[in-house]
Simulated scan of single mutants.
Amino acid sequence: MSGGSYNYLYLAADLADLGQQRGDLRAMSDRLAELGYAEGAAAETRKLLALLEEAPVRPDLAAVWKAVERWDSFDGGEDAVREALAGYQGDKKEAA
């Protein structure tokens, strides 16, 4: 079987898949740019990579998700969700 130079990047179905393949995206963007006639595809690949890098999950948002997940699986409670939300909302106010 041939291919796989970019870990089958073309099979990525969504941003979650692409998020795990940032190095492959960089390599593909570079390769497209090297071709000299695929600058549009290279630019779009770079733009997608930039979007992935600009949008990491904030730790305070992850804490909210964790608290809700634990509550829904009966490993935590509403108080933990409220506490996580207070930290999340406090950080958002400071950032504004």
Rank of each mutant, 00 (worst) to 15 (best):
G76T: 04
G3P: 04
F74N: 14
R58V: 05
A33I: 06
A63C: 03
L61Q: 12
A84R: 04
S29V: 04
G3V: 06
A95R: 13
L32G: 07
P59I: 02
Y8P: 01
A43C: 11
E34D: 14
E44A: 04
E94R: 12
L51Y: 12
R26E: 00
A16T: 08
Y88C: 00
R31N: 12
A63S: 07
D17G: 10
G90M: 01
P59M: 06
A96F: 14
D24M: 09
G3N: 07
L18Q: 04
F74L: 15
L48V: 02
E83M: 10
A62R: 04
K47T: 10
S2W: 13
R46C: 00
V68M: 07
D30C: 10
E78S: 08
Y37F: 14
G77P: 01
A13P: 02
R31V: 14
A16S: 05
K47C: 09
S29C: 05
L9N: 09
G77S: 04
E94L: 14
A16D: 07
P59E: 04
L18M: 07
A42Q: 06
Y10H: 08
W71T: 12
A16F: 03
A27C: 05
R70L: 13
A27M: 10
D30S: 13
G23E: 12
Y6L: 15
L48N: 01
M1L: 15
P56D: 09
G87P: 01
Q20I: 10
E78L: 13
L25N: 00
G90C: 00
R26L: 07
E78A: 10
N7S: 10
T45Q: 05
R46D: 09
G90I: 00
D14T: 03
Q89W: 08
R58H: 11
G19P: 03
L25M: 07
W65D: 11
L25V: 01
L49Y: 05
R26V: 02
E69A: 15
M1P: 13
A13V: 04
L52N: 02
R70K: 11
D14H: 00
A55L: 15
A67F: 04
G40C: 11
E53I: 01
Q89S: 04
A84I: 02
A55P: 03
E53H: 01
W65L: 07
G40F: 11
G4E: 09
S29Y: 03
L18A: 09
A63V: 05
N7D: 09
M1Q: 11
Y8T: 06
L11E: 10
D75I: 08
L48F: 00
S2Q: 14
A41L: 14
L61I: 09
M1R: 13
R46H: 02
K93D: 15
